[in-house]
Amino acid sequence: MTTLRLGDTAPDFIQESSTGLIHFHKWLGDSWGVLFSHPADYTPVCTTELGATAKLADEFKKRNVKVIALSIDPVASHLGWIKDINETQSTEVNFPILADADKKVSTLYDLIHPNASTTATVRSVFVIDPAKKIRLTFTYPASTGRNFNEILRAIDSLQLTEYYSVATPADWKDGDDVVIVPSIVDPEVLKSKFPKGFNAIKPYLRITPQPNK
C-alpha cells in the first residue's frame, strides 16, 4: 500500500457503519470531510475523543464538514460503545463510526503500522476537501489523544487559504492576521486583493488582516 500524500484523491469505499452502509464519496457530497481512526472500541482515549467530536457538532456543521470515525470492530460493538460514550461524555454521538472488521478501509488509508501494532490502527486524521482531495493528514500513537480544536483550526486555515491569496502563520487562529503569499508582487494586484493594507516586515514577509473578516 502506497502512503497517501497531500493532494491525492481520498480512496473511495463502501463499508458498514453505526448508521448504515456508507458509500464514502457519495456520503461526502459537496462537503469537506474528516476521517479519523481509532485503535479499537471500548478504549479510554477513543471514548474521550469521540465525545469531544460529538460536542463540536455545531462547529463542524458551520464549516460544512462531515465527520466520520473508523474502528476495526463490528457494528454491534460500535452501538454498545456509543451508549457508553454518550453516558460517560455527556453527549450524543451524531456521526457514523465505520465498522472496519475486514480492515478494508484501514488498508486503503494505511492505518495499520506494523512496527507500532500488527492489529490496531493508529490515530490518523485525514481532512478531505469537496473535490475529494486529501488536504491534511496527521498521525498520533495509540496512547496520545488528539486535539480536536487543532483540527478545527487547521480546517479554518485550509478554507481561508483556499479562497484568498494568503497563508496562516504559526499559532494562527481565526481572526488573527495572516501573511500574503510571496508570489503576489504586482502593486495593483496587492492593492486590489488587500484593501485593508499590509505591513511589509521583509519583502517576503507581509502581514495583513484576515481578508474575510
Rank of each mutant, 00 (worst) to 15 (best):
E87K: 15
L79K: 05
L98A: 06
L108A: 13
I112T: 08
A131P: 00
L136R: 06
T91Q: 00
L136F: 14
D73T: 05
R153A: 11
K104N: 12
L98R: 01
P74M: 02
K103M: 12
I134E: 02
A142E: 07
K83H: 04
R63L: 05
A76N: 12
R123S: 09
K66C: 04
S106H: 05
K62G: 00
D110F: 03
T107W: 01
N64C: 03
T107A: 12
F148T: 05
A116V: 15
I134Q: 07
V105C: 01
S71W: 04
L98C: 03
S90K: 09
T144Y: 11
T139V: 15
T88N: 14
N115I: 10
R153D: 11
I128T: 10
I112P: 12
N86W: 08
L70W: 07
I72M: 13
V93Y: 01
D129E: 08
N86E: 15
A120E: 14
S77Q: 10
T118S: 15
T121I: 04
A120P: 00
Y109D: 11
P141D: 15
R146D: 05
V65N: 12
I151D: 13
A69D: 03
T88L: 11
T121A: 13
K103N: 08
F148Y: 15
L111V: 05
P141K: 07
I72Q: 10
T144N: 11
A116N: 05
H113E: 09
A101G: 01
K132W: 06
D129S: 13
N149V: 06
E150S: 05
A69K: 04
T107K: 10
V127C: 03
A142R: 11
K83W: 00
R63C: 11
Q89T: 06
K83M: 06
S117V: 14
N86R: 04
L70S: 00
D84Q: 08
L111N: 08
K133A: 10
I85D: 02
S90I: 07
L70R: 05
T118V: 10
N115P: 07
I82A: 07
P74D: 13
L111W: 08
I82Y: 01
D73K: 03
K103R: 15
N94H: 07
S117Q: 11
T139M: 09
L70Q: 03
N86L: 01
I85H: 00
S77C: 10
T144F: 11
N147H: 11
I72H: 12
E150R: 00
A76G: 04
L136S: 09
L152T: 02
D110N: 15
V93G: 04
E150Y: 01
A69N: 02
A76R: 13
R123F: 10
D110L: 00
V65D: 07
T107R: 12
G145F: 10
P74H: 09
L136W: 15
S77W: 02
V125T: 14
I128K: 05
A76M: 01
E92V: 15
S124I: 10
V125Q: 03
P130E: 12
I82S: 04
K104L: 13
A99Q: 01
T121V: 11
I68E: 06
A120I: 13
S77M: 06
T137C: 05
T88F: 14
R123G: 12
L108K: 13
S77N: 11
A99T: 09
V122N: 00
V122M: 14
I82H: 02
S124M: 12
